[in-house]
Structures are given as structure tokens and as C-alpha cells.
Design a binder for these strands. Structure first.
Lengths: 200, 200, 200, 200
DNA sequence: CATGAATGAGCATTCATTCAT
DNA sequence: GATGAATGAATGCTCATTCAT
């Protein structure tokens, strides 16, 4: 759809219905035969992406069994989406943070289904005993999605690059083990003790 | 400043210079004696928040020495900012993701300084040996900020509440230990083995 | 076109797009379906006049053969234009002296074609031997157009009248013979000789 | 005066009182202690130029006696003015063609005095018998000034150059003798006779 | 179904000018 | 006499949306 292009390139507010029509090769007023409003057009664009992506995700997840593989896959999939469709993803990230209730009513479900896979994988990890039983599942999910999107911010603005695989590895590692040094290992240098000078 | 209020309430695009002037009790054109453009007005508002907040942060950090306390403090501080100024924070989060280079040139430095504290605390943890030496520092920072902001999204939209303290505890815990169950403990139920049925 | 009227009456700067729309019986924004900018509207108005006038000129010139007749015709035609469309001509004279390169790019060609007829007639006169072979053709053209326009200035401001025929005769005469008294004739009174008292 | 600079550079409409004040190092509202309105400021600028130039002109004319020398001098003087102060002259030429009666009331006299010298010189030529007695004096004056200004138009727009001396010579020549070939001389090629083919 | 003309409400921005201090 | 803050009215331009044909 051309609307996807236009919104992706210029953002929702800067995009104009006229431009969408122009690129579609139709006349301006004709757009309103298909959608009732510009906002609805946006909802269509985003909904379509979610539908498409959810389908793909679910298809590929069928072949992935272990919790860890699923997490790794979902993390990488989200990173790939950001890398491959930066404009569209910037649009989604931006417009999903809107008060527009009518809009959220439309895409909210799809978004939930999209994030549900990750949440579900985490829950499975808890259930299976691989993960701590008191893990705040939603918060974990938020840290993954939020972390990925925060990390990709610069790339979404057109600066720098985005390495899907290594980032996915790092996120998965942090997710599983946290930042703390492995008990026996790392204290090569020395540990801080009370009474040390302030850090700055 | 009234501009802060207006932008916070209505968002940048929906806010009008006329409304800002009206609330300030002056005439529309008069706004342009102080700023050259609406965008510059936004930059002022955001800059001021960062300046103010950076000062506060740095002041309080002086009394906090341990890495863990610092992380906990910075996480809670960001959560508090979101809880106490949801409109403004939504504005900042949204507008910081703009291609507008001139704008980012102004607030970029302040934003970097704001996030630097967290990054620095993490680096100290690595240096002291508390954290693994190969920790991807920036990514950790992104997961914290991104996670917090993702978690607060619903609250920023006016739905639900935001529990600063418990969320900060949870994030800190996840950050330190990850999601994995403590070695001896949790596998009460059972672990998944290869060959198990798919999770969905 | 109503834009022609409005610009002619009030001048470009004082004219407003709103006024043009009002007189056209449409809404202001609608003007921008046909032109991209106010300046472009001006360009249209002037271009149209030049196109129309060039066509007329070229049509009538086909029946005029002698150099002298052509000059006389072109001089009178320009005077007639000034007399019959003073507002529009004042607009053209004024706006043609603008630095606006984009504007000149549009109407420049048409203006050149308009003045070319006069220049060409002069060149023919040179070629045929009727005019001195070292005549500075462009300067002659400038003196004709400039002279006519200077002469009409007061009329263009709404004061006095403009006699096309007699002015055309006089200009043609001056153009051909200059101001100098015919050799044998006029020195009835006396000629000044060196040593005479100053003139003022 | 700085107003002269500002008006010369940007033209009357584009110039702002604020800019004039800024360059003068005073505060905006302070300009209104000296002039009552922006238009009056313009009148001052132009008046001053005319006063200054009239004085210079009259001073130098005292030493020039012959009609021809005077004409040549005045033509060259006007060309020099255009060459040396293109911005200011463009301003004057443009703004003198304004309906603003109040404005013309102020500078009209000075302008008349400026052009009077040329007109007077021509009248002297008529009186002395050097020029034909039926010469339309004002029209001759218009052709000189108009011709010069038309010729300088491109230069005033910032394109090309302006050769004062040779242009003055050419104008003077045309003025005196017209374009017609000297009786005996030029018909080297041949003269056109009735019945010749059309010129184009 | 499609066209394209029209609408109307809005909005950022400019600027000459005034006036209390 | 100067300052600088304030005014107010205007203006070019945009755009989602409607509707007769």
C-alpha cells in the first residue's frame, strides 16, 4: 500500500492525504471511498503490518520448541523488523503512544497479540522452572521490547547501523544472567568494600 | 512556563502558539519576542526540564556511593519523573524521536548528560568487578530506560498507575540476576527436555 | 482573471490572496489549487498578458512592412497598452524590476519576445541602410521603452492623460532625427558661441 | 544613515523597522522618536539623496557652459548614480512610482528639481537655436531618463555591468542625431523602395 | 465508481506601532 | 530621552474532508 510508504517516510502528521492519493494515482477525494478518515488510514497501515507479522511469527514459532530459542527468535525478529522497516517501525512506535482511544481500539488487539508471544515464552520459562518463579513477566517483556527499541532509536533516525544477531545475543544473555559477574570468576581486579571512596 | 503545560497536555503538533499565548495572558505575536519559532519553544521547554533534572540528579548522587544504590536511585528517579510529569515525559519521549536535527542539536547534549549517569554507574560496576567485564554497557542502559518507558506507556496514556518503588526493585533485580532460576532452587516442577510438545 | 484586477488595483504587495479569492467568489484556500504561491499567481497574470499581447502584436505586424511603420506601430502599441491597462502595466513595470530569479525565469522569456519586435525593427532599419550602421540597437530600444514608460509615469499614477497618437509621432520623430535643428533652417534667433554667459 | 542601507539592500516592503533599529544600535521603538512612520523614514532617505545630489549637480554645473556639455554631464551623472548606488537607485525608481500622495508631496519637489536641470539644458538648446524649436522638451527628458534607467535595469538587478562613459556618449549621439543614417553616407548597401518584400 | 473542485477552519509567523517605566 | 515589552491586525499557506457531477 502506498499509504504505508508515505506515512513511513514523512510520519503521520507530516504526511498528507493528498500525497497518498497522488502516489496511488488516484484523486484526492477518492481515498475517502476506502477509509473514513486519515486516522483510519493509519490504523489500516499499522494493522496490516501487525497481521502480516503476527502470521509470520506464528508460522515460524511452530518449529521452535525450547524457551530459550523462542526468546532468541522473538528478540531477533523484532530487531529485524526495526532494521528492515525503520520508517514503518518508527511510525508504529510513535503512534502507538497516542491517547487516541479509537485508534488503540483497532490496533491494540493486534499489538497485544504481537507482544503476547514474547510474554508467553517467558511464562513458559517460569512454568518449566527454567526461570525464577517470581519473575515479573510483563516487566521482563517491557525490558526486552523497550530495550530493543531504545537501542534502535539512533538507527531509526537514520544514524548508525543495527546489528541484529549480536544484539540479540547480548540481550538474551543479559536477560538470562543479568549483569552480575559470575560468582567465582570475574573479581580479578578486586571487589569494592564499604569505606571505599565514592565512585565519582 | 505555560508552554510546558500546553505542550504536555496536547502534544507538540496539537498545541498551538495561540494557546500558549492565551494562557500566558499575552498576545500571540508576543511569543515571538522570546523564541524564533514554535519548534524553538519546544526545545526551550525540554531543555529546561533536562537542566533542572540533571542538577537535581547530580546533587543527590553525591551522597550515594555504592553502584547498586546508584542504579536503584537512577531507576527510581526516572520512574518518578514519569509518574510525576507524565505529560511532559510523554512529550520528551515522543519528540526526542524526531529527525529534526536542529532540535536534537539543542537538547541532544542534555539528554546525553541525563543518561550518562546511568551508563557511568554501570561502568563503575564493571570496573569494580561487581558486574561481568564483558557487559554491553550501552545496551544495559537502553534496557533500563527502554524498559521503564515501555512499562510506563499505559500510565503515560492515562490508564492505570505506576508503582515507583516496587518497579524499581524489580528492574534492579532483573538487571542484576536476570530471569534464570537460582541454580539449586526453583526446578521444583520439572525442566523441559528436548522432545517435549511445542509450547503453543 | 480576477487576480489581474486585484494586483492591478492594489499592487502586488498590498494585494492579498484573500481578496482575490473573495472576488472570485471562492474560498481563500481554494486559490492554492491553481497556483502554488502568491508569487506564482502574479507570474500567471503577467505571463498571460504577455502571451496575449505578443500574439496580437505579431498578428498585426504581419501587415506592416516598412521599418518606419513598424516602429510607429510598436511605439503606439506600447503607449496604448499603458493607456488602456494602466494598473496592469504599472504592476508589470514594477515587478519586472525584482531580484526574484524564479519569477524572472517565468516571465523573462515572454518579456524578451515582447521587446524583441522593436529591437528587430531597428535592426532591419540598420540592415536596409535607413539607419546608421553603428546605431546601438539595444540602447535605442531602451530609450523608446524607457522613454514611453517614463513619460507615462504620471498617467499611471492616476494623474493627467496620455495621448497615444501625438506622443507616438513625437517619439518617432525624435528617434529618427534627434533634437538637433535641421541644418539650414532654425537658427533664426542665433547660435550660442563660446564665451557666452552661463545658462543659469 | 542606516535606513538607507537597509532599504537599499532589501527594498522598502521587505525592510523592517526592527532591522533598521538593530543596525543603528538602538531599540526598535526608538526609531519613532525621529520619524512618525516607516513611510516617512523612506521619504527621509530619498529626500536626503536628492538634496545631496542636487547640491553636487548644481555645484558642478556652474562650470559647464555649453548645452551639449551640460547634457553630456547630466546623462553621465545619472548613469554614475545608478552605477555607484544601485540599491538606492532601484529603491528610488521603484518607490517613486507609488500612488502614495503624501510621500510624493515630500520628495516630488526634490525629484522635479533633479530632473529640471536636464529639462532646462534642453530648453536652452532650443532657445539658442541648436535644437529644433518644436522639440517636445519633456518628452526628450523622459527619453533620456527613461532610456538610462531602462538600460540599467539588468545592472540594478545585479547582472552585468554598466559602462558610464560610452553609454553617455551613445545616448548623447542618439539624442542629437537620431538613428537615421547621415544623408550622403550610409546607403552603401541600398535603400529600400516601395514594393520590396516584407521585412520578416 | 471516480473526478476534481470547493470548503472552512486553522496556524505559524510578521511587523508597524504604542506606551508605561 | 531611551528601553523593551506588548499589541493587534494581518497574511500566506495547509489540509482533512465533502459533494455535485
Amino acid at each position: 500500500m502506498v499509504a504505508e510508504q508515505v506515512f513511513s517516510e514523512m510520519g503521520y502528521d507530516s504526511a498528507t492525504v493528498a500525497e497518498v492519493a497522488r502516489r496511488a494515482g488516484v484523486v484526492e477525494g477518492n481515498v475517502y471511498r476506502y477509509v473514513k478518515t486519515k486516522r483510519e488510514l493509519l490504523a489500516h497501515v499499522i494493522s496490516e503490518w501487525y497481521s502480516r507479522t503476527n502470521a509470520e511469527l506464528e508460522n515460524e514459532l511452530r518449529h521452535i520448541t525450547s524457551v530459550r530459542s523462542r526468546l532468541r527468535f522473538l528478540i531477533a525478529a523484532h530487531l529485524r523488523a526495526l532494521r528492515d522497516s525503520p520508517g514503518l517501525m518508527r511510525l508504529i512506535i510513535r503512534e502507538l503512544r497516542t491517547s487516541d482511544t479509537e485508534f488503540r481500539a483497532i490496533v491494540g488487539k493486534l499489538n497485544q497479540r504481537y507482544t503476547w508471544h514474547l510474554r508467553h515464552a517467558i511464562e513458559c520459562g517460569v512454568e518449566s522452572g527454567e526461570f525464577g518463579r517470581d519473575i515479573p513477566v510483563r516487566l521482563v517483556r517491557d525490558m526486552i521490547f523497550g530495550g530493543i527499541e531504545h537501542h534502535a532509536t539512533r538507527y531509526l533516525m537514520g544514524e548508525g547501523s543495527l546489528d541484529v544477531e549480536s544484539t540479540a545475543d547480548q540481550i538474551l544473555f543479559l536477560l538470562l544472567h543479568g549483569v552480575q559477574a559470575p560468582p567465582g570468576a570475574g573479581n580479578a581486579r578486586r571487589s569494592r568494600k564499604p569505606g571505599d571512596k565514592p565512585l565519582t
